[in-house]
Measured scan of single mutants.
Amino acid sequence: ELREAFRLYDKEGNGYISTDVMREILAELDETLSSEDLDAMIDEIDADGSGTVDFEEFMGVMT
């Protein structure tokens, strides 16, 4: 189920989504998050600083 959700956002099928897209997902899930909260969450999610979120990083957030 998580893989299907990931595929919805990984429109190009390249195995990752951008941190911008991940930020939008988080904002949709919790509309009360401030910009600073979102920045901090993205920094934590994208631990390797690649600017992308792969499936493993995505799973870590969603579980």
Rank of each mutant, 00 (worst) to 15 (best):
L2H: 05
L2F: 10
R3K: 14
A5W: 15
A5R: 13
F6E: 04
F6K: 01
F6T: 02
F6G: 00
R7L: 15
Y9N: 06
Y9I: 07
K11H: 09
E12H: 08
G13H: 06
N14G: 04
N14E: 04
G15A: 03
G15C: 05
G15E: 03
Y16H: 06
I17V: 06
I17D: 00
I17Q: 00
S18E: 04
S18W: 04
S18R: 06
S18G: 07
S18D: 05
S18H: 10
T19S: 06
T19C: 07
T19R: 07
D20S: 14
D20W: 09
M22K: 00
M22R: 00
R23N: 00
E24S: 12
E24Q: 14
I25E: 00
I25G: 00
L26R: 00
L26W: 04
A27I: 10
E28L: 15
E28W: 11
E28K: 15
L29Y: 12
E31S: 14
E31I: 12
E31D: 11
T32K: 10
T32Q: 08
T32P: 02
T32L: 07
L33A: 05
L33P: 01
S34I: 04
S34W: 04
S34P: 03
S35A: 10
E36S: 12
L38Y: 01
L38T: 02
D39W: 07
A40K: 14
A40G: 06
A40D: 09
I42A: 01
I42W: 02
I42S: 02
D43Y: 13
D43V: 11
D43Q: 14
E44Y: 11
A47S: 12
D48M: 07
G49C: 09
S50T: 12
G51K: 06
G51R: 05
T52Y: 10
T52G: 05
D54M: 12
D54V: 08
F55W: 11
F55V: 05
F55G: 01
F55R: 02
E56T: 09
E56P: 06
E56F: 10
E57T: 15
F58I: 03
M59H: 06
G60Q: 15
M62R: 01
T63V: 11
T63Y: 06
